[in-house]
Nucleic acid binder design. Structure first.
Length: 205
DNA sequence: TGCCAGGCCCTCTTTAGGGCCTT
């Protein structure tokens, strides 16, 4: 049975290419339609947390100073995730930080990301918007805690992915939805969801 | 001190611009 690792970063800014660093990471393991494992830690990368980010996340400079070193946390979470396929909400963002923080300890990513944002745009085109908080309400996913904290966001992203997998199974009469199928769907045009799944079914996916 | 990005995708498109998402 496939296990999926859903991750979420809190950071000091938008891009590691401009000096932003991670302040917190969470990873949850999803298997058999349920969350079966959780990892969460603040991390001290020596970076300054701007006031806007402190307000947004509730993660302060004082909290970061007392947190374990980023190197230690990244080694732990990389070990926790292993080679399981990855997922995140707006994965382009988390992928940048995952790759950057791993590179700093001499590691590299071993798997691809599924993106719950791209999937939601295809599966829930009529949602008011595709922010995580809006989708949690729209898809009736349980609120797991404070938004913009890593573990709560990772758990809600995982639950949203499970809800979308259920929707795909119902709509297309599939017995299961693999990470590979999610990758195929998110890579296809928004307007071609039906044709994309039928092609997948046709080649025995 | 506290600046800042970039991929996706739509459309009044493709010789481009701008909104959506993530922190």
């Amino acid at each position: 049975m496939e296990t999926l690792a859903v991750i979420d970063f809190e950071t000091t800014g938008m891009s590691p290419g401009h000096g932003a660093r991670a302040t917190e990471i969470a990873a949850v393991l999803v298997r058999g339609g349920a969350i079966v494992g959780r990892y969460q830690s603040l991390m001290n990368a020596g970076a300054y947390v701007p006031p806007f980010i402190e307000e947004l996340t509730g993660i302060s400079n004082a909290m970061i100073r007392k947190a374990p070193p980023a190197e230690q946390v990244m080694r732990e979470v990389a070990e926790f995730v292993g080679v399981h396929p990855l997922a995140a909400h707006n994965a382009a963002f988390d992928r940048k930080f995952w790759d950057d923080e791993l590179a700093r300890i001499g590691l590299s990513r071993r798997q691809e990301f599924a993106c719950s944002l791209l999937l939601a745009r295809r599966i829930y085109p009529d949602a008011p918007n595709h922010k995580l908080g809006t989708l949690v309400e729209y898809a009736r996913v349980p609120v797991a805690g404070r938004f913009h904290r890593a573990l709560a966001d990772a758990e809600m992203t995982a639950s949203l992915l499970l809800r979308m997998e259920e929707e795909l199974m119902r709509r297309f009469r599939l017995e299961a939805v693999s990470h590979e199928l999610l990758r195929v769907i998110q890579a296809a045009s928004r307007r071609e969801l039906e044709a994309c799944v039928e092609r997948w079914r046709g080649v025995g996916g």
